[in-house]
Amino acid sequence: MRLRYLALIVYFGFLLLPIYWLVNMSLKTNVEITSGLTLWPQNLTFANYVTILTDQSWYSGYINSFIYVAMNTAISLTVALPAAYAFSRYRFIGDKHMFFWLLTNRMAPPAVFVLPFFQLYQTFGLFDTHIAVALAHCLFNVPLAVWILEGFMSGVPKEIDETAYVDGYSFPRFFLFVFMPLIKAGIGVTAFFCFMFSWVELLMARTLTSVAAKPIGAIMTRTVSAAGMDWGTLAAAGVLTIVPGVLVIYFVRNYMAKGFALGRV
């Protein structure tokens, strides 16, 4: 028993130390960072955060990221909900192939799609817009959303659908007012996953944008300059990218475990 808690503490230490180090560095001056190793900031400073939060070219990155992540989550959920319902309730021609084909898109390496996406979105005049990144991220988020939602929906007995239809509900009314409230935990978890995978992805987001919709991840690279690395600002920018994730985890903490099992446990 004691061994078990010791092992857990060691593991959590391993998880948290690198994050602590990032936070620690974000609160130091660059002089202190490069002049020697200190376990906590000797001259506590918030200057790095002030730099980011007052400079438009910095904080616009966060806004851009939020916009395309929100768009992606909304699009993914809207199209995935009816599809997941179809997969969980009906048998139709090609259903199994369709499901596998959707999954293959989750399996496709983003690197394969980078070049054609770049050209496709340029052809449609969507290059450097938020919607371009949101649509590109649908490639892996929509299949995942269908997969998770299907798992949750299959947990709802079919008798509920049938009773509702007998009671005279039309399909849209049933779906919106009876069925969706029943799987709201599943919808929450799916939204969490869409948020997560869109928020952490950078390769596509970086390739499809240049100025107007540039994500924070791409802006972070400018801390490398001729004058040397601006470690403090880089660390502060990193810390700020972790904050939204922490907030989102907190909201779904009770459903998260089940969601990770794709609703199938």
Binding site: L15, V200, I242, P244, G245
Partner: peptide, 9 residues
């Protein structure tokens, strides 16, 4: 926590 951190970070 680590899962919600952008990959470049």
């Amino acid at each position: 926590l680590p899962l919600l951190i952008p990959w470049n970070v």
